[in-house]
Amino acid sequence: MAKGTLLITGGAGYIGSHTVKQLLQRGEKVVVLDNLVFGHREALPLDRVTLVEGDMGNAALVEKIFAEHQPEAVLHFAAFAFVGESVTDPLKYYRNNLAAPLTLLEAMQRHGVKEFIFSSTCATYGNPQFIPMNETHPQDPVNPYGASKHMLERVLKDCDTAWGLKSVFLRYFNASGCDLEGEIGEDHNPETHLIPRILMAATGELESITVFGTDYPTPDGTCIRDYIHVNDLADAHALALEHLRKGGESVAVNLGTGRGFSVREIISTAERVTGKTIPVTYGPRRAGDPPELVADPAKAKALLGWEARHKEPQAHIESAWKWMTGPRKGRYAATS
């Protein structure tokens, strides 16, 4: 059976663009819908991808895409993802992360498209009640970002009951790293992720990296996180698509390595990779930061055949450093 077209929302963003690259290598036909608020035109090979610039909440545009391209499945990355901003401006997050995708789902229902891969998050769990966290962990998000993702998971479950939509919820832990070839990478404004901020401190773009809290109940007093390489996330999306194409049921899986590393461990690894001393400032804990977040990824391996290949943070940092010191210096054009 010939492969159909894939519609990828947010495909010009960080994780979306890395997944697009992987899917193209697998011979897929891709249409990207991205409003380019946070995405970058230059992150896509426009000779091999159809880019539609616009918003997934625009019903007329979404209908036009479905009528013209007749997608077989939707991979949904598009979302706002700044936790702090979600607390101060919750309606922005509920409109974009919850309300706008309903337009997409209505078009899918009208056109009989019943395969949906959702970029969800470990933030749907809230504060950890046990470590490592598996998919049976209670979902009690502590901020509107996590809540918006959790609510859309519920919507997708209800669509399965009502009209047979099959979804895979991919609950990411801490996405990191860049394309191993250095062609594309992570370029956020503002940049909030730890590894690029550490590397920005290494290049002098930042005066220092601030470590928030050194008195956590962890071996070195700093927060521990499960860092998952963006290429491993891309692999998981491809395998989730295979699962649905084979008639698989809706499922939620964690995407992580199952190993946690502290902020201090990440900084020391970055110093080894870059050969530079990273200037560090120590600050108080940030409200809402749990001491430790680590995935139990066993279900993803059992159901999708997926396992992280890049389990050591050195590989994540090396690929991010390659992007940051490469021709683009870690940045796409300001206009892209």
Rank of each mutant, 00 (worst) to 15 (best):
E181L: 06
S148C: 04
Q129L: 13
L194K: 05
L180R: 14
T121Q: 06
A175Y: 01
L180Y: 02
F173E: 05
T124I: 12
A123Y: 07
G177D: 02
Y145H: 05
T121G: 06
I198N: 05
E181S: 12
S176Y: 04
P190Y: 09
H193K: 15
S120T: 07
T124V: 15
D158M: 13
A201K: 06
C178S: 09
E191N: 03
S176I: 03
G182Q: 02
E183W: 13
S148T: 08
G182P: 01
K157T: 15
N174A: 09
E191Q: 15
E181A: 07
E153I: 09
C178I: 00
W163L: 04
L170S: 03
N127S: 07
C178H: 04
F173Y: 15
G182I: 01
E186C: 14
I198R: 03
H193R: 14
L152M: 12
R154C: 02
C159K: 03
T192L: 15
D179M: 06
T136I: 13
F169W: 02
A201D: 08
T192M: 11
H150P: 00
Q129M: 05
L165N: 09
P138R: 12
T136W: 09
E153Q: 08
E135F: 14
P138W: 04
E135G: 13
G177R: 05
A123K: 07
W163Q: 08
N143P: 08
M133G: 09
A201P: 05
A147N: 11
H193N: 10
L165R: 03
P128F: 04
L165E: 02
W163Y: 04
F173C: 12
Q129H: 12
E153F: 09
K166W: 02
R197E: 08
C178F: 01
E153H: 08
A175R: 02
E186I: 00
G126D: 06
W163V: 06
L199P: 04
E181W: 00
I198W: 00
L152C: 10
H193M: 06
G126A: 05
D158G: 03
E191M: 15
G164D: 11
S120M: 08
F130V: 05
I198Q: 04
L152P: 05
T192P: 06
W163F: 08
K149G: 10
D179R: 06
E153M: 10
L165V: 06
V142E: 12
F130A: 15
I198G: 03
S148V: 01
I131Y: 00
F130I: 02
L170M: 13
R197C: 13
G126C: 10
D160V: 01
R197W: 01
L165T: 01
I131Q: 15
L165W: 04
H188V: 03
C159Q: 11
T121N: 04
F169L: 06
F130H: 02
Y125K: 07
I195Q: 10
E191C: 13
R154V: 12
Q139P: 00
K157N: 11
L156P: 11
F130Q: 03
M133Y: 02
A123D: 14
K157V: 14
D160R: 15
T192W: 13
